[in-house]
Design a protein around this nucleic acid. Structure first.
Lengths: 365, 365
DNA sequence: AGGGAAAATGTTATCGGTTACATCGATTCG
DNA sequence: CGAATCGATGTAACCGATAACATTTTCCCT
């Protein structure tokens, strides 16, 4: 009976009770020392070809695969990058994650993921686990601002002592990490201008939340442009209450039912495409025609945008590029502790038919 | 100069050059042995309260966090479960993944993820890495059948020697692992019957691929029920060519343009909701009214189904439950090597309006 | 007070690799 | 021909925890 408890799979190989194969087994079978085996499996040059071959044969024969754990212990790292995001179900986060995973893999790194809902705090336990796992870096995605995530600033600060950190969020004095973000204020101004050009004067904003994900910046940009264009800034046009399709339904229902129909907005900007999706459903259900009775703009340019009816005009935030940059920065930071910085990407408005901009649509109606 | 190369973050703490804090540092500072520190941090009971407190203070003061790597080396495992899936972007996989992550986390395990496209082989390198990382289990999701993924059977067999394996796929003689799956044949029969009840006689199947993800079973169920109901089985009604929305567009275009409009099907079943989404767009574009001129059924009951126009009737495959079971089985298998088995879940048809079944819709038109 | 059991704590081998350094043998060169 | 050199290989310390076992301390009871 072995002294230590072992997982059953470590004991069994074939039918006999047996230990996992280690570098010592290989060394013994090949008649060399463990140092030589290491040289062979890590591809160092100073090994005689015939020795190398002998070792390689044993490795293949035994199906030996060196323990990444033991390797990690030596140099205190894991070849793994941690990603924290609210929920992978949201396609925006899925895109970010997917792109990050690819980029990491291309560089021989793996991904460790943790979902933490937007409204949950980032507590010490998470940081502890990340530090404890000796991750090579951390990538935070989603609502990052202090107000919405209690303890986040402290968490990031602590984490930053152990590994490089990148976040998708506007730079923030208290956040001492690399920040990648979009200029959402300018993006919103762009959207408002787009609607203005198409003749809209009463424009609403739905979904999101003041605290999370920089809808502060969005709100600001939205209001700024309204003022710049001399448009009315009706407080009841600003409904912030969530991030999913249901929120969109609710927002529309509340917004429209609270106002006389003569005061209804003629266009709305949604926090994201999910919100827009819900809004479109509710609008249709209330008998409005899109885009004639109501124009709508989403955000994130999701895969389903071309397939809504009408196809949804949306803002592209380039999450794939952000993710790639994030991983690259984290990997670069392995070499030398970098100065924190921030990088802004332009957002682009992808015009489809939900605002009536493309000629085809109005004609169809 | 330190003898070993260290990542820069191991060297720096504050401004001074310093090693990472280890259990030895804590033990020394607290004036106890490492064994006692271990007892405290693992919460064992046989420690004098005052000793415990002293150690805890040092731990807190130094911000000490024990190395999961060193721990893992001791018992040859990682508290990590590997998940392999084609692409996280697909909301079906995202759901599975998310649910698995939650369940694993609730049990103190983490997730290691690798995306491998449906058409890519599962090569030795992947298996090597999983074995090398000493994962506690592997969860395969997506097109699993041998034909589509060269080398998969061998890979699973090898992997199965090192860790428990669960796959979402119909049981398969060569696959010596736990299989969770849906009876897609029966599900398809159900769908065909649904359409038949609504008066449809010419029913098509679009999207997917004969090799991947059990569309073999789907195809079989589809054909079986057509025969059982005495419906025509027109080979040109069977277009298998992909998994995304664009495939849906293409399939509809090809299907309809290859046939005289009097021979057009009056209903179609899509491989998944993405395919259905694309199909709906193309159908509308060709001037067909849904569901009057064409009924359509999707599969996966995605989040956007209630929001398509008309809301999409779809088949629910219970990925969340599958994922939970998968993780539970993998964790249970940590204790004792289980006999492989398979578990089938019923699929359910979620009826919305894309087939005209709900009374409201036809009236509206 | 003394003996013995029980509780607290310490000592040390161990997990599976990597690597600095030691050693050994062959080649080269004065 | 012997010494210096270089390449191939071996030895053993080390990474940071855990846990079996050994030892010390505490405490209780006669």
């Amino acid at each position: 009976m072995p002294t230590h408890a072992m997982p059953s799979f470590a004991k069994k190989r074939g039918t006999r009770l047996e230990k996992r194969i280690t570098i010592y087994d290989v060394a013994r079978a090949a008649g060399v020392s463990t140092a030589t085996v290491t040289r062979v499996i890590t591809g160092q040059s100073n090994v005689r070809p015939q020795t190398r071959e002998k070792v390689q044969q044993i490795v293949d024969k035994y199906g030996y695969s060196p323990s990444a754990i033991a390797r990690g212990l030596e140099n205190g790292q894991n070849k793994t990058i941690g990603i924290i995001l609210p929920e992978i179900i949201n396609p925006y986060f899925a895109q970010l994650f997917s792109s990050a995973e690819e980029e990491a893999r291309r560089n021989g790194y793996s991904i460790w993921l943790r979902q933490i809902p937007s409204d949950a705090p980032i507590d010490d336990a998470v940081v502890d686990e990340m530090v404890s796992r000796r991750l090579n870096g951390a990538f935070f995605v989603g609502g990052i601002l202090e107000a919405s995530r209690p303890g986040l600033t402290d968490a990031l600060k602590r984490l930053g002592q152990y590994m490089p950190v990148v976040a998708i969020c506007p730079p923030h004095a208290a956040l001492n990490c690399i920040c990648l973000y979009n200029d959402l204020a300018s993006c919103m101004r762009h959207a408002v201008r787009h609607l203005h050009t198409l003749g809209h004067r009463r424009i609403a904003f739905i979904g999101g939340s003041l605290q999370v994900g920089g809808s502060g910046a969005r709100g600001q940009g939205f209001l700024d442009e309204l003022h710049a264009l001399g448009l009315p800034d009706n407080p009841s046009y600003h409904h912030e209450n969530g991030f999913d399709a249901e929120s969109g339904e609710r927002a529309v229902l509340r917004l429209l039912s609270s106002l006389d129909s003569r005061c209804w907005p003629t266009a709305m900007i949604a926090f994201n495409d999910l919100v827009a999706l819900g809004a479109m459903k509710q609008l249709k259900q209330m008998g409005l025609r899109l885009p004639d009775d109501m124009a709508i703009i989403g955000c994130d340019n999701q895969f389903f945008c071309p397939y809504t009816d009408p196809p949804l005009t949306s803002m592209e935030l380039h999450p794939l590029e952000h993710a790639k940059s994030a991983i690259r920065e984290l990997l670069a930071a392995q070499e030398s502790h970098p100065q924190p910085f921030s990088l802004m990407r332009d957002s682009t408005l992808v015009v489809r038919e939900s605002c009536g901009a493309k000629l085809g649509y109005r004609k169809l109606e």
